[in-house]
Design a protein around this nucleic acid. Structure first.
Lengths: 336, 336
DNA sequence: GCGGCTGGTCGAATCGTTTCAAGGAGAGGG
DNA sequence: CCCTCTCCTTGAAACGATTCGACCAGCCGC
């Protein structure tokens, strides 16, 4: 019942504590006969190492934390998957903390993690307010890698995806398939990702005289608001109605798609649609959705590798800012 | 840089170690002036408690683990959410472990968690093989609550949803809206959930002479196989074609829906569809999908509460097996 | 036969906390 | 003025592991 300690194992095997520890950590130092005796004692007692004591002695834990904005978001679950894959056989254990876009929760998690002396942290911070706390962690010797946020200051590693490029890709594709009247359906511009995606889209549109990009700014990036945006678009007279819509994420796009179908407008015949994120359900929509895909797993994997490097290189580590390129996946919703 | 210990705080504040500890844990025992001096020392040194030492002394940690089959599955993320909510102000910290339906990974996590002396574990085990390991944990004094699996043996708590009832609800609804030729699209019957849902559906169908339930067993519960099932159904001549389809999960249902739309069959006009799980995208489908919803957050919350009870009641705890009822959500895809 | 070496084992120190019995300084009562 | 009581504070003993110098017994070579 009460889990037994190394001391009892030692007594039962008739050896010293140090020898038991050696069996556990450097078995080749111990004579085979003794080793076997100790192992037997361990199994009969059902001994389980106490990790707290181990860590206390070692001065740090073997776990790495990933702090995400939303565990339910497929984007982050894939990032976590990537990170886990990268750290799988490094002896480290990955734990996932969910800040839920709540600065207070984030703060609490970071405090906890520091108390636990985690080996390192991968984090997508809720806002820029977290910066001071993160600086502190770094000063205290805990490596931090930023995920999906480029780092302005060069004193940490970060991985991100080029959202401006993503916007360019989407709109370039729409122009190439013949569209001239294009709508951008976005969310609050306070979200950096939304702003960047729009910037890319606008830049491409501005390069051509005959292309016009209108903007619909919705309060949030949900299907419900997508439907609402769809209504507004469908209500326009055929001549002034955009023939293509680029949405800041897939949920918006699904909403728009749904509304078009309901109104009897053909996709992509009357209106082409391109989303962003390439979530699993994008491909499964009634009309499979074109979307700008981000290398989610790769993002997590790379972040983990940077962290791993930082942990091992120690003082002479050079921080790196990695930026990935998104990729356009063309499906039926924007086929010619 | 090197994080400072309680000892240095004590020296800097000119008090003993014990006093610093008291400031941290029972501040009212310390004279205000002293307390302030200690707090100042703590902030100037940037002292952070060492949780390992704390736990070592305490004998157990303050964390509770949730071991899920798939972090990316919305079902589990909601369960986790519920558990977090229930434990939020109990001082416990929730960590999420992902077994990825892999017994080896599951085993490794359980080992790690036992070494960490976690307070308790919520788990959806990969298979019945885990049972022995779980028994062991329980014997060693770590409370375990099963999630989404009823416990046969009465020696632990569990929470589950009545899948047989879910099947009944779906088919009863279809019969009431006038359907007589109904298809069940399922997955491998080795999955208990699938078997139960089918059992419920079959039971209701058997109660009426004029109702016929055919079964399509697909290899996996994905949209791709849903489309395939859709093909088979659409290929049938109109007279023998089922007028309603009940799918073992929403992904299958979305696949079927997609194929119907592609073939020009109206949903629900020609074929009504009911799914299972009520995932977020069910409501967002081109034709909003009727689905059997499980109380996912409630499941997590209840599991956490049972665990909490078990932790606190100690010896005189009585294990309970809680079963929740699913609920049918009717949307357009099966509207009359 | 003796010095040195090697392989195996031991014991003690250490990590950073918490807890608790014990002590000390004032204050208040007799 | 002394005794008692309260309030603070202290110091030492855990908790369970790891690590490292010391020790001991054989064995080898000279």
């Amino acid at each position: 019942m009460a889990t037994s300690s190394i001391k009892e194992v030692a007594r039962r095997a008739g050896v010293s504590i140090g020898t038991v520890s050696n069996v556990l950590n450097r078995p080749d130092l111990v004579a085979p006969a003794t080793r076997q005796r100790v192992l037997d004692a361990i199994t009969t007692l059902g001994y389980v190492r106490n990790d707290s004591a181990r860590q206390l002695r070692a001065g740090q834990s073997r776990t790495v934390a990933v702090v995400v904005l939303d565990v339910a978001n497929p984007f982050f679950t894939d990032v976590v998957r990537g990170a886990e894959a990268a750290l799988d056989n490094s002896g480290a254990m990955v734990i996932v903390c969910n800040s839920d876009e709540n600065p207070v929760r984030e703060r609490r998690h970071l405090d906890q993690l520091e108390e636990q002396r985690v080996r390192g942290i991968l984090i997508t911070p809720v806002d820029n307010g977290s910066n001071e706390r993160l600086e502190q962690l770094i000063r205290n010797g805990i490596p931090v890698v930023l995920v999906d946020r480029g780092s302005r200051t060069r004193n940490r590693c970060s991985v991100a995806v080029d959202d401006v490029l993503g916007g360019r890709l989407a709109v370039t594709h729409l122009i190439e398939t013949g569209h001239r009247l294009i709508a951008f359906v976005g969310g609050p511009t306070s979200i950096a990702q939304v702003a960047d995606r729009h910037a890319g889209a606008a830049a491409v549109a501005a390069e051509r005289r005959d292309v016009k990009l209108s903007v619909l700014e919705m309060p949030a990036l949900t299907t419900a608001f997508g439907r609402m945006a769809g209504e507004k678009i469908a209500d326009l007279p055929a001549g002034r109605r955009p023939t293509a819509v680029f949405c800041a994420n897939d949920l918006l796009a699904l909403g728009v798609l749904q509304e078009m179908t309901r109104r009897g407008l053909a996709v992509p015949g009357d209106v082409a649609i391109v989303g962003y994120d390439d979530i699993e359900y994008a491909a499964a929509a009634a009309v499979p959705l074109s979307s700008v895909a981000q290398p989610r797993e790769l993002l997590g994997r790379t972040a983990a590798e940077l962290l791993y490097g930082e942990i091992n290189d120690g003082e002479n580590h050079r921080h790196r800012q990695v930026v990935f390129e998104p990729e356009l996946v063309v499906r039926d919703s924007s086929a010619r």
